[in-house]
Design a protein around this nucleic acid. Structure first.
Length: 213
DNA sequence: GGCCAGGACACCA
DNA sequence: TGGTGTCATGGC
């Protein structure tokens, strides 16, 4: 008998406590982090963000001005730095061209419209879009990632094949649309995934394996 | 020294 | 639509 998604959340929350995501000082910093962390560990992103701050480059205007090569050097630690430099600039360019440079206006769009507009920007896929919506725009769009899939698959909630939309709509339909709940839920899945559900699972002590605790 | 990380996209059949 | 290659650094 499977636990409900709310049961899973409660169990994770009780075990790990609040994760207080996203670690950032501004909406724009969330967006930069969301792009930089694509297929990369967060520690490397922290270094890049630190450098960007040191150089006073962590703003829409500065990213708009800086050339891709110089930006690439600052974010090199994240890997795929040429791609990511281009993606950061593409995003900022979009906001300047389509929104007169107002990130506020852009993020204030109704959620589903914001989502489809984000997905139109090259380099922003579903997970990055939902991260931006949930943690920068503070709207209830559930974020799915590989950990989410691994955990849900290993606990029998979904098939082996990874389909982003399937998992997202599962959480969106079964949970109350609450921003704080979604923010913590995704962060807790990442926490659980890192500690117990990597490609090589280490299940001993996993809070979802109640028999083992 | 190999494996993997808080993905996205192009290209192919 | 499903599978595969590419992008790249750095921690463990």
């Amino acid at each position: 008998m499977g636990k409900s998604l709310e049961d899973i959340f409660r169990r994770l929350f009780d075990h790990f406590g609040p994760q207080k995501w996203w670690p950032a000082e501004s909406q724009f910093e969330v967006i930069v982090g969301a792009i930089l962390t694509q297929n990369t560990s967060w520690k490397k992103v922290e270094r890049a963000i630190y450098l960007l701050k040191q150089e006073d480059r962590l703003s829409m205007e500065e990213i708009h001005k800086i050339d891709e090569e110089s930006l690439g050097i600052l974010i090199k630690s994240c890997g795929f730095f040429r791609q990511k430099a281009k993606r950061l600039k593409d995003f900022v360019n979009h906001i300047f061209i389509e929104w007169g440079g107002s990130l506020e206006d852009f993020l204030n769009q109704p959620m589903e419209i914001l989502r489809s507009n984000l997905l139109r920007i090259k380099g922003i896929g579903q997970e990055t879009a939902d991260s931006i919506i949930l943690y920068a725009a503070h709207k209830p769009s559930f974020v799915v990632d590989r950990y989410t899939h691994r955990i849900m698959f290993r606990h029998g909630y979904t098939s082996q094949r990874y389909r982003y939309e399937t998992l997202r709509s599962l959480f969106m339909s079964e949970l109350p649309k609450d921003v704080y709940l979604f923010q913590e839920y995704h962060a807790l899945f990442v926490r659980l995934g890192k500690e117990y559900c990597g490609k090589i699972p280490r299940c001993h002590g996993c809070p979802l394996q109640e028999d083992v605790i």
